[in-house]
Nucleic acid binder design. Structure first.
Length: 282
DNA sequence: TATCCGACCTGTTGGC
DNA sequence: TGCCAACAGGTCGGAT
């Protein structure tokens, strides 16, 4: 499932295969895929036709393609989204939602394929910071060199919520999902239900370091699933699964202490943790 | 105003 | 074998 590291792999692929090309047209095959484009599918297509992609950017799990003229094509892969560069003659995928064609047809077309339709595409103006207006409220992600660790700590201290909720709040820190939240908390020996405001500055710094390390490891693993002709996100790729320490490992021994990993229902999802390494708050 | 929680969506898995 | 419920989870909007 696409997480920040996989989105970054997609960004690199798009930078190679789509950047600097001119979009000739957009075909929306499922309106839900452009639901975040308030003016509708026809307007979405109108705003892309004839525009040149000038770069490929990412913040957290969002990707965007700045276009000449000052707008950008924004993409979120949701849970099952893929952005594929395919030859135009290739048969349509079962869950193909949007097709972008380019004036240099020989280099293929860009397809947005999304089984569960949680992801989507939209076109927005860019703010002065070069970020699409629709995601201007999203915090920087921990892989961003400009991520402000002190500001993150101060924001945590102000929050009357629990640690994992705070990690999943994209306005505090972006790019962290359920899997990497559990993995980073395990590495930091912190319980998910601990009050967000209870960490010292040093402990916050440790947690951020663990988030970065687990994401960097996943990015390195995700990069191996690519071949050179193809921008591919394989949501079912098991490559990094083998490196996970707690997520999805209910009942299996903790890799640190051997205690069986537990799974607890948590806001319509699951939290995985080691009951010995990660003591619950009193 | 801040925080919480259900709905959205579809394929897979497991239980009966 | 077939049916059904549970599950996966990021984001948004309504509820508290």
């Amino acid at each position: 499932m696409p997480e920040l590291p996989e989105v970054e792999v997609v960004r690199r692929g798009l930078d190679q295969w789509v950047a600097r090309r001119v979009i000739s047209g957009a075909q929306v095959l499922h309106p839900r895929a452009v639901r975040r484009h308030a003016a509708g599918p026809a307007d979405f297509a109108d705003r892309l036709a004839g525009r040149r992609v000038t770069a490929v950017r990412r913040r957290g799990k969002y990707l965007w393609l700045p276009l000449d003229g000052g707008s950008a094509l924004l993409a979120h892969l949701g849970m099952s989204g893929q952005l594929l560069v395919q030859p135009g003659r290739a048969p349509d995928e079962k869950h193909l939602r949007v097709r972008l064609t380019f004036d240099d047809t020989a280099r293929g077309e860009l397809r947005f394929v999304d089984q569960r339709t949680f992801g989507g595409l939209s076109v927005h103006r860019l703010t002065g910071d070069g970020v699409p207006e629709a995601i201007a409220h999203i915090a920087r992600d921990p892989m961003d060199p400009a991520f402000d660790e002190d500001a993150f700590h101060d924001a945590l201290r102000r929050r009357a919520t629990t640690l994992k909720r705070a990690l999943l709040d994209q306005t505090l820190i972006s790019g962290v999902g359920n899997i990497y939240a559990d993995e980073a908390l395990w590495r930091a020996r912190l319980h998910y239900d601990r009050p967000a405001g209870s960490l010292t500055r040093r402990r916050t710094a440790e947690l951020v370091r663990h988030i970065r390390e687990v994401m960097a490891a996943a990015l390195a693993a995700g990069g191996t699933s690519f071949d050179s002709l193809y921008v591919n996100v394989n949501g079912q790729s098991g490559y990094f699964d083998r490196s996970l320490d707690v997520y999805g490992r209910e009942g299996l021994p903790c890799r640190r202490c051997g205690t069986p990993v537990r799974r607890r229902p948590w806001t319509n999802r699951s939290s995985y943790f080691c009951p010995r390494c990660q003591r619950p708050p009193r």
